[in-house]
Amino acid sequence: MTIVCHQGPVLAGSATLATLGSLILYSGTPGRYGKHSQSASSGVSLLPARIAWFLQELPSFVVSVGMLAWQPRSLFEQPGNVLLGLFSAHYFHRQDICPGSAMEKSNPSSQNVISKEYLLSPFDCHSTQKERESSGLAEILWWQSCRLLLFLLHFEGHGRHFYLWTTFIYSLLTRGRPYPVILFLRAIAFCMGNGFLQAHYLIYCAEYPKEWYTDVRFSLGVFLFVLGMGINIHSDYLLRQLRKPGEIVYKIPQGGLFTYVSGANFLGEIIEWLGYALATWSLPALAFAFFSLCFLGMQAFYHHRFYLKTFEDYPKSRKALIPFIF
């Protein structure tokens, strides 16, 4: 099969991502879902949050993995294929970081098969709020990275069936407000287009030297990606624990990086994509990282403002996105 790189669509797609990010900054408004969604009485068509979040992010995984499976070269022959695996892993790994605990709640007789590795972290599923809040920022960042690596090693050692079962339940665990249909359709189009852009560039356009795996950009980028994913997953877990089944009320997040910022989950995902951009050293990845920074940064800013307005006892020292700074 001939390897053909279409530079025109790659440049156009990258420019589109950068433009969308700039428009978000210019508009100065958050995405109208969750805390910032319109009421049902406004006449906006809505979808259940669990269905919307599952389906809208699925194209990014399906498109990237599909193109990776059908690409003509050996899977590990090119660094671009491995880097695309990082992109796919983000959407493949949108799950509960405590799958054993999730299973125990629904089936008390189930076994937590990752308890040995998981309890090596001071932020295990069974740690108390006081223990999580007493840890410093450096310790939090360090353990989030180590914890995710242990989880991935567990996956390799215990087979893929259990992991596959837990992978796509992240969205099904969501307890958010109904999601606007128009945003759902936009998200599907975005995820499909961005998945194709990242996959096409890394498979057909990117050219890396054989020593790229030892390049500092690759090593540091992968480290940041894994670190960001750990922060993102752990923060999402903490948010889910705030609500009981059936609840839609908002509460003050506690523990982890929420000790320092209101948008800990957003910060983790931003770090992920900055690491991805560094590891790939590509224009499409940089454009996506810029878009993510604009979109998620705006969400974090308005989340922070929402908390300050809603809760009189909200920690005044907590920042929106960057600890101690912003």
Rank of each mutant, 00 (worst) to 15 (best):
L227S: 12
T280W: 00
E211T: 15
L84C: 01
L183F: 14
S22I: 14
W70H: 02
T166C: 09
Y213D: 00
Q198I: 15
H36Y: 08
F258W: 10
G8F: 08
L293S: 10
T128I: 05
L173P: 03
V216H: 06
W281Y: 13
Q241E: 13
E139I: 13
F54G: 09
T2Q: 03
Y33M: 14
F223D: 01
Q144G: 10
L137I: 14
Q71I: 01
C205Q: 00
L20E: 05
Y204R: 04
G263A: 06
G31S: 13
F196K: 04
L58E: 03
M192P: 01
K105N: 12
L220S: 14
W165G: 10
L238I: 10
A320T: 15
S42A: 14
P30V: 06
L25C: 09
G13Q: 06
F196D: 00
V222H: 07
P209V: 01
P30G: 09
S115M: 12
W273Q: 05
M1G: 09
S101K: 12
C191W: 00
E207A: 10
V181W: 06
S64D: 02
L148V: 11
V4F: 05
R160N: 04
S135N: 06
G28P: 07
L141E: 11
K251P: 01
K251D: 02
G136H: 00
L120H: 15
V222D: 06
H93Y: 09
Y276W: 15
F288N: 04
T2D: 02
E131Y: 09
L86A: 08
M229T: 08
S106M: 04
L172R: 08
Q7F: 09
L286F: 11
T166D: 02
I114W: 04
H303S: 15
P178H: 03
D313W: 05
K244Y: 06
I203N: 00
P315W: 04
S135W: 09
K251G: 09
L239D: 12
F266Q: 13
C125V: 07
L152G: 01
I322Y: 09
P315V: 15
L220E: 05
K251M: 00
Q7Y: 11
F301N: 03
L119Y: 08
N107S: 13
L137Q: 03
I114E: 10
V4C: 01
C191E: 07
F76S: 03
Q241C: 12
G246P: 07
G31H: 07
C146L: 14
L83E: 06
L278Q: 14
Y170E: 11
N112R: 14
S171Y: 10
C191D: 04
G193M: 01
K105Y: 11
F288V: 06
S262N: 06
K319H: 04
F225I: 04
L185Q: 13
A102K: 08
V82Q: 03
S282N: 13
I140D: 08
